[in-house]
């Protein structure tokens, strides 16, 4: 029994509240407790910083010959992504132009000079909500998530 439940029962015993009110209060407490204790979904980041980007490719166990399929399990630290993106600041102006041009040729209108550390943190923070779950026709399950 929690401290709050005990208080509610004491108030009922002292007739400060009636049985209906006590019932409602206890119900409200239960709801609040179950909400706060709800187990986090697998791979989801609850509070704190995301540490790893995970990519897994697993065969569907229900498919025949699934034991012969490839299995991939990659775990990339977020710090490595940060460090990698920060390398763009080392690219000299002349080369940056070429990179931007190559990106434009591929249909990506993006200027790598605009990548700033604060944007980077925002981008990585947003990755915490990323979850990709693909089931292919060949019986492979591809998952990309952050943990």
């Amino acid at each position: 029994m929690t401290e709050n439940q005990k208080k509610i029962l004491e108030m009922l015993a002292e007739k400060k509240i009636n049985t209906d009110e006590a019932y409602r209060l206890l119900n409200a407490l239960d709801t609040a407790d179950s909400g706060s204790k709800e187990s986090p979904k697998e791979g989801k980041v609850i509070g704190g910083k995301a540490k790893y980007l995970r990519v897994t490719v697993m065969p569907d166990p229900d498919r025949p010959n699934s034991e012969h399929a490839d299995r991939v399990n990659v775990r990339v630290p977020m710090n490595l992504i940060r460090a990698g993106i920060k390398l763009t600041s080392l690219i000299p102006g002349e080369a940056t132009e070429k990179v931007n041009e190559a990106l434009r040729d591929k249909g990506i209108n993006f200027d790598v000079r605009n990548v700033k550390p604060e944007d980077l943190e925002e981008l990585i923070g947003a990755l915490a909500d990323l979850e990709v779950d693909v089931s292919s026709a060949h019986g492979e399950k591809v998952k990309v998530f952050v943990e």
Partner: peptide
Amino acid sequence: KTALLAPWAAWRVFCATRGLKVDVQN
């Protein structure tokens, strides 16, 4: 500037590899 900062950047990338795991099997 790139040549000057490259060793430091390489060290930072190296440090960031802690925890990296690649596992491919059949």
